[in-house]
């Protein structure tokens, strides 16, 4: 929206992973538009607070609707939009701090409800906008501005967390591969249920993990990233657990359960039993 807006003064640092995620989301929304014929305004991007949330202002080309609210609350806002207007495509974008720390309490309930949205988490393992504090995914022992002698608690494992909480679609991607990432996001959008797309999106200023992700043969660094083998059965939860417990950062679809109905489907089914009464009829029940 803000490509030609001189008033908007926010910038990502050169090389920030979020550029790639933005590109992937633009690709995904265009793909969707071409596939469904629905206008761009049918998409609603609900953004968190932090570097990642600014994505909603930095999208180029045709503009979707956006919601840039308060820290940590992307999921319940997205639920409000989706359950109010089920025909809309609702996409959440948030960082690891927003989504997993202050917003962590909302993941379990939405997974249990199987809310039909797609959440893209941009994980850089640090609080960037507040200048380099430790986040849930910062590695144990890492020195940051808020952990001057090293991070004290163990790092979160988001993929395992989503699996345990019952997300019905879990994909893992890398910001350096926007085309591939777009495909994962499109599949998350198409999934009838709660879809998590967790993206490694390095922070070049405070936590540059490009080399770790991609490896460096000269320095003898093995890449953490690897493509999920074709034989992986994403419908098998046990196999998904095995995958996320291995060392390294898998890229692709880890888990997909298409058997569970979405929140909307359950609501439609359950509430069909309810008698529909007008206000006048409801008042009759209090008349004497």
């Amino acid at each position: 929206m803000s490509k030609k807006n001189p008033e908007y003064d926010f910038k990502w640092c050169p090389g920030c992973g979020d550029f790639g995620v933005r590109r992937a989301i633009e690709f995904a929304m265009i793909n969707r538009l071409e596939e469904t014929g629905l206008p761009m305004e049918n998409n609603v991007v609900v953004a968190g607070i932090g570097c990642s949330g600014n994505l909603v202002h930095l999208l180029e080309g045709q503009q979707p609707y956006g919601f840039h609210g308060i820290h940590g609350r992307t999921l319940p806002v997205a639920m409000g939009v989706k359950m109010a207007r089920p025909e809309l495509n609702v996409l959440v974008v948030a960082g690891d701090g927003d989504f997993l720390s202050i917003g962590g309490e909302h993941i379990g309930p939405q997974a249990a409800r199987n809310l039909n949205i797609c959440a893209v988490v941009m994980d850089n393992g640090v609080y960037g906008l507040t200048k380099g504090q430790s986040s849930p995914t910062t590695q144990l022992g890492t020195v940051t501005s808020s952990t001057p002698y090293g991070k004290i608690e163990a790092e979160a494992d988001p993929l395992e967390l989503y699996l345990t909480l019952g997300a019905t679609f879990i994909a893992s991607g890398f910001s350096g591969q926007p085309r591939e990432l777009a495909k994962l996001i499109n599949q998350g959008m198409d999934h009838e249920g709660f879809a998590m797309v967790h993206v490694q999106s390095p922070c070049t200023t405070y936590n540059d993990t490009y080399e770790l992700m991609k490896g460096n043969a000269r320095k003898g660094i093995e890449p953490l990233m690897y493509d999920i083998p074709e034989e992986h059965d994403a419908s098998d939860k046990g196999a998904a657990y095995n995958l996320v417990q291995q060392r390294g950062m898998p890229v692709g679809i880890i888990y997909k359960d298409e058997t569970r109905p979405s929140l909307q489907q359950r609501v439609d089914e359950i509430k069909a039993k309810a008698p529909r009464r007008s206000v006048e009829e409801l008042m009759d029940s209090f008349a004497f």
Partner: peptide
């Protein structure tokens, strides 16, 4: 926050 989403959506 849920009714914020719903109110925004109309």
């Amino acid at each position: 926050t849920t009714i914020l989403g719903a109110g925004y959506a109309g």
